[in-house]
Design a protein around this nucleic acid. Structure first.
Lengths: 195, 195
DNA sequence: CGGCTGACAGATTTCAATATCTGTCATTCC
DNA sequence: GGAATGACAGATATTGAAATCTGTCAGCCG
């Protein structure tokens, strides 16, 4: 951890913070740790982020945005709306499951962070439902879907599939029936969307 | 708290335990407290329940069974299946919301208890989905519903409505849009069930 | 007897002292 | 002159000793 002589940027602080969170977990990751990892005094960190909470929120936003990004490609695709909807939901489930199963501790860390940041999570959910709205809207236009209010319907689809993307259910994503349960719910919803 | 001279039964212990939980909350409710409330020594409580965990599990089961009981009447009803399904889901949501909103502390207490008792909760969920299965089965027989595997479909309906009965979402049940969200999800599911 | 008691060992919780952290800001350094 | 520092006050977390609780059991009492 020799003092890196590069200029101290918000970006570098965020990266160091992710590292510290990975190593120490959310409860024990301090601003002092972050500063130490960067070879600067903790006062310097406060020059870029007003509070520890703001720093953690920025890290949370970054992480959530990465997930949104992975999915936006599918939402913007041009296949049949029904297939696109299924793909999008499956990709969301798969991404969450991969993160939760791949590095459970890091996932737990981010679960704590999202719990702290209602606002950032709210924006993320708004982003995802807006992607869903676009898919459903497209389906309505092609006549594949019937939905009086595509936005409300997107919300309903998102909420109905909560068990397959809400982190509080992560424990159950690796259980035997999870995949079948997911398909059953998606099938039911897709049938409900048809005219 | 004068020593009641009645015979000490499991039933009386359960009632006293509920009282103590109501008063002290789940973290501070001790077996000694329960014994004191009954005017007996804590050794006597251990005669009826092997461990503190077993005592708490029994209390949890009791509470969950009360909820199941409230709903079984609707499931066993004889109205049109679609209406029965809507009524049942609405009653489940209403019951949970009433409990969560009416006495938030007690609800939090029971939320902790259910968190401790995966097994009891599993049975409760199995009971509820079996009620749902009966409704859907009835709908299949009258031709109101199409479902290749009513049990799997019941599971899907239960899981898709999780946000409106899972205690971890209790915070959101009092928000403005909750009722509309509920209706949107139920509408989508009911449409999905139709032949 | 058969349910109940109360003393006990080990586990868990509480509490207060101690150490660390957060956030500020006058000062330093390039 | 503008970024970085480090000392500081108040808030928060850690620690270890004392208190309480859990679960057992030999003996009491009706």
């Amino acid at each position: 951890m020799a003092p890196t002589s590069e200029i101290l940027t918000a970006e570098r602080i965020l990266e160091a913070t992710e590292d510290v969170l990975r190593r120490h977990g959310p409860a024990k990751a301090t601003v002092v740790d972050v500063a130490r990892a960067l070879g600067v005094s903790h006062g310097s960190v406060y020059r870029h982020f007003r509070t520890k909470a703001a720093l953690r929120e920025a890290v949370t936003k970054r992480w959530l945005d990465r997930t949104s990004g992975e999915l936006s490609g599918i939402a913007a695709g041009d296949g049949a709306p029904e297939a696109r909807l299924r793909d999008w939901l499956a990709a969301l489930f798969a991404a969450k499951r991969r993160k939760a199963g791949g590095d459970p501790e890091l996932f737990a860390t981010y679960t704590v962070l999202t719990g702290e940041n209602g606002a950032a999570v709210g924006e993320h959910i708004a982003d995802l439902t807006s992607q869903l709205t676009r898919i459903i809207q497209a389906g309505v236009e092609t006549g594949d879907f019937a939905a009086a209010d595509p936005q409300a319907t997107a919300r309903a689809v998102f909420q109905a599939t909560g068990r397959f993307h809400d982190p509080s259910y992560a424990r159950e994503w690796e259980e035997p029936g999870a995949e079948a349960d997911f398909r059953a719910v998606v099938d039911l919803l897709v049938r409900g969307l048809r005219p």
